[in-house]
Write a protein that binds this DNA or RNA. Structure first.
Length: 193
DNA sequence: ACGATGATGAAC
DNA sequence: TTCATCATCGTA
C-alpha cells in the first residue's frame, strides 16, 4: 500500500489506540474519543462504529463516578491501569461500557454513550453483544473489542459539551459539570463554513 | 406518563 | 432488609 493510497483513502488508516492514549485525564480522553472507532470482532466478523457520544467520570472526588464510593469489587477495575474496560450492570437490564483512564491507582473512566447506529449506552452494548465478560479486559484486538483511529478526527466546532445524563444524585456541583461530549455532525470530518 | 427489569452498594 | 441507581422498553 502506497502513501498515496492513504492520502486518497483516509479510511484505510487504522491505528489501534493503545494504553498511552487512555493513560491521561478522563476529560481529554472522552473528548478525543469522538470520531474514533469502536471495533467489535465476533469470530471472523468485524464491525466498526464511529463514536459520537461519551461522558467523563474524572476521579474519586467526582460524586457521579462510581469510584467516589471507594474501592469495591465493582469499582476495582477503575483503580487499575488505563486501557481496560469497566463494564457494569444497571437498572437490572443494561450493560454500560466504560474505558478506564488515568494512571494505575487513580480511578477514572469514560462511558461510551453513543456510536453511529446505536445511540444510548444500553442500546450500544446490546447492539455489540457486550456484557460483563468484558469487565477488566484490555482494549486490544485479542479481546474482540478495541478502539481505532481511522484518521477521521472531527472539527472542534462539531463537538458539544453538556452536563452528564442521569447524575442528579451527585449534587449540583458535579451534576452540572459539562463532562458529556457529543458529536453533532457525525458524517462531517472537517469544518463547514 | 409509568411500571418492570434485578446487580451493586449504602442506608437503615 | 429496603432503597436508589451513569436506561430502555412496553403499555396506558
Amino acid at each position: 500500500m502506497s502513501v498515496a493510497s492513504y492520502l486518497c483513502y483516509p479510511h484505510l488508516m487504522r491505528k489501534v489506540l493503545t494504553r498511552a492514549f487512555f493513560d491521561r485525564s478522563a476529560e481529554r480522553v472522552a473528548r478525543e474519543l469522538l470520531g474514533m472507532y469502536l471495533v467489535r470482532r465476533i469470530g471472523t466478523r468485524e464491525e466498526a462504529f464511529r463514536i459520537i457520544e461519551t461522558e467523563a467520570y474524572v476521579g474519586p472526588h467526582d460524586l457521579a463516578c462510581h469510584a467516589a464510593k471507594g474501592l469495591t469489587k465493582r469499582t476495582e477495575v477503575m483503580f487499575g491501569p488505563a486501557g481496560r474496560f469497566y463494564v457494569y450492570f444497571v437498572y437490572g437490564m443494561h450493560w454500560m461500557l466504560n474505558i478506564v483512564t488515568e494512571r494505575e491507582g487513580y480511578p477514572a473512566a469514560v462511558l461510551i454513550r453513543g456510536i453511529e447506529g446505536a445511540i444510548g449506552p444500553g442500546r450500544l452494548t446490546k447492539r455489540l453483544a457486550i456484557t460483563g465478560v468484558f469487565n477488566g479486559a484490555k482494549a486490544v484486538r485479542e479481546s474482540g473489542l478495541w478502539f481505532e483511529d481511522r484518521g477521521t478526527a472531527p472539527s472542534p466546532r462539531t463537538i458539544r459539551k453538556t452536563p452528564r445524563i442521569g447524575v442528579a444524585y451527585a449534587g449540583k456541583k458535579w451534576a452540572r459539570k459539562k463532562l458529556r461530549f457529543v458529536l453533532v455532525a457525525p458524517a462531517s470530518q472537517t469544518s463547514r463554513r
